[in-house]
Amino acid sequence: MTIEEKIKKLGYELPKAIKPVGAYTPALKIGNLLFLSGILPFVDGKLLKTGKVGKNLTIEEAQNEAIKVVLNALAIVKDYIGSLENIKQCIRITGYVATTPDFTEHPKILNSASEFLIKIFGDKGKHCRVAVGVCSLPLDSPLEMDFIFEL
């Protein structure tokens, strides 16, 4: 089963690759590593959820947004290298979560992204991770993530 077939089996569709909203490249390959810029949970070019986790979004809503970010990341990878089958390993995810000052459950939000990657890639989806709480993100997004993949 291909990676895209696994994604569909889990009930998701790989979207079209999102375009940058600033002066940067969405992906940069150096040697056998592919670095992705910060990715927001866009759906058809729009953020369906905005605000802060703990105020405007529940943990469950933010977990769903994290999966949208992973799907957008994989769409960028496919657009950049042609196939998700060329991914050897997800190396690292950095997740930034816009939260209220007293919120401390950042790992729970990013767990949904990590678990999703493991479901579709198996051991190749296991990665290092950083979860950071921030006071705001671009476009009032509740979540932003960047990725490093080995090809």
Results as ranks from 00 to 15, higher is better:
57 L>A: 11
58 T>N: 07
58 T>L: 12
60 E>R: 10
60 E>K: 12
62 A>T: 05
62 A>V: 04
63 Q>L: 01
64 N>H: 09
65 E>F: 03
65 E>G: 01
65 E>I: 05
68 K>E: 13
69 V>P: 00
70 V>N: 14
70 V>L: 12
71 L>I: 09
72 N>L: 10
72 N>K: 09
72 N>S: 09
72 N>W: 09
73 A>D: 14
73 A>Y: 08
73 A>F: 06
73 A>S: 15
74 L>D: 07
75 A>W: 11
75 A>H: 08
75 A>I: 06
75 A>C: 04
76 I>D: 04
76 I>T: 15
76 I>Y: 07
76 I>Q: 05
77 V>E: 15
77 V>L: 10
78 K>S: 07
79 D>S: 14
79 D>Q: 09
80 Y>K: 14
80 Y>L: 01
81 I>L: 08
81 I>M: 11
82 G>T: 07
82 G>C: 03
82 G>P: 10
82 G>N: 06
84 L>T: 10
84 L>M: 11
84 L>A: 11
85 E>S: 15
86 N>R: 15
87 I>Q: 08
88 K>N: 15
89 Q>S: 13
90 C>H: 09
91 I>Q: 12
92 R>M: 15
93 I>G: 01
94 T>V: 14
95 G>I: 01
95 G>D: 05
95 G>A: 13
95 G>L: 11
96 Y>E: 13
97 V>G: 02
99 T>H: 01
100 T>V: 12
103 F>H: 04
104 T>E: 14
104 T>I: 00
105 E>L: 10
105 E>P: 01
105 E>N: 13
105 E>D: 10
106 H>A: 12
107 P>K: 08
107 P>S: 10
108 K>S: 12
108 K>G: 02
108 K>M: 04
109 I>A: 02
111 N>F: 10
111 N>L: 09
111 N>T: 10
112 S>A: 15
114 S>G: 07
114 S>K: 13
115 E>G: 02
115 E>K: 00
116 F>G: 06
117 L>E: 06
117 L>V: 04
118 I>K: 12
119 K>D: 15
119 K>E: 08
119 K>Q: 15
120 I>Q: 15
120 I>V: 11
121 F>S: 13
122 G>V: 08
122 G>R: 09
124 K>W: 05
124 K>D: 14
124 K>H: 07
124 K>L: 14
124 K>Y: 06
126 K>I: 14
126 K>N: 06
127 H>C: 07
127 H>F: 02
128 C>F: 05
129 R>M: 08
129 R>E: 08
131 A>K: 01
131 A>L: 03
132 V>Q: 11
132 V>M: 09
